[in-house]
Design a protein around this nucleic acid. Sequence first.
DNA 1: CTTGACTCTATACTCCGGTACAGGGTTCAT
DNA 2: ATGAACCCTGTACCGGAGTATAGAGTCAAG
Lengths: 133, 133
Amino acid sequence: MRIGEVAAQAQVNVQTVRLYERLELLAKPARRASGYREYTDEAVLSIRFIRQAKNLGFTLNEIKSLLDMRKQGSHSIADMRAVATARMNAIDEKIRQLQKMRNAIDKGLRNCKCPEQFPACVFVELFEKFEKL
Amino acid sequence: MRIGEVAAQAQVNVQTVRLYERLELLAKPARRASGYREYTDEAVLSIRFIRQAKNLGFTLNEIKSLLDMRKQGSHSIADMRAVATARMNAIDEKIRQLQKMRNAIDKGLRNCKCPEQFPACVFVELFEKFEKL
DNA sequence: CTTGACTCTATACTCCGGTACAGGGTTCAT
DNA sequence: ATGAACCCTGTACCGGAGTATAGAGTCAAG
């Protein structure tokens, strides 16, 4: 299979496939005499793996770690769980932070009495009263 | 006040002050004969405004919009509320998305039976079963 | 009057994850 | 054997929000 076919099956851009190869997320494929990359079906699975991990919020670096661990064999399963747990905790932290933000904006909007001075409106309340979330 | 003093008082980098000026978030200050920027206290307040809006999740572009609206006068208060509301909704959406991610990872970790095949461990479950969050 | 801290502009670089282009070579069906 | 569609490498660019560096000029204290 050539790169265009792989990209189509995995639903990504051709450049993205080459990027993942360069970042060592994707094994270097065989090459034809012409220099063309020649892939097997496994490449499509690998790319889907990467995309799905991305959808779960893993960064490409984390995904590389996971793939490297997998190469090490089954004894690194605990390490992989650790990466997943760390990512989950980071997501939780991000959620907490965003909830603080949304609540501060919400409160500012509801309490606004729009005094006509700098900075103005919602933002006087918001930025003076809730300076430290 | 020179730029270093302003930056120190607002707790940002000197470069950041110049960046904000270039992005038109911050009014161009007076200049000495030497070319040095000469600021008043208001600049410190402006920068704090920007930082606090940033802490609430506004992008610099949104902040620029807010500042521009403020220059228009009080009739644009409704517009400012609209920007704040839009930002709040975007934050809510982001929170929902992150909650899906964290739940999928959590489920994967808890259900994991670690079959020794590609991709491995948590991720077999995770990426095959929860392909579409 | 010199020295060290500060400032000026312009440019480049960082991270993150791609995406686009230029200027070539290849494949394949007609 | 020719033209469209594909592929190659290398490089540059996007957005977002800065940070760093180079090379020059300025300010103020000793």
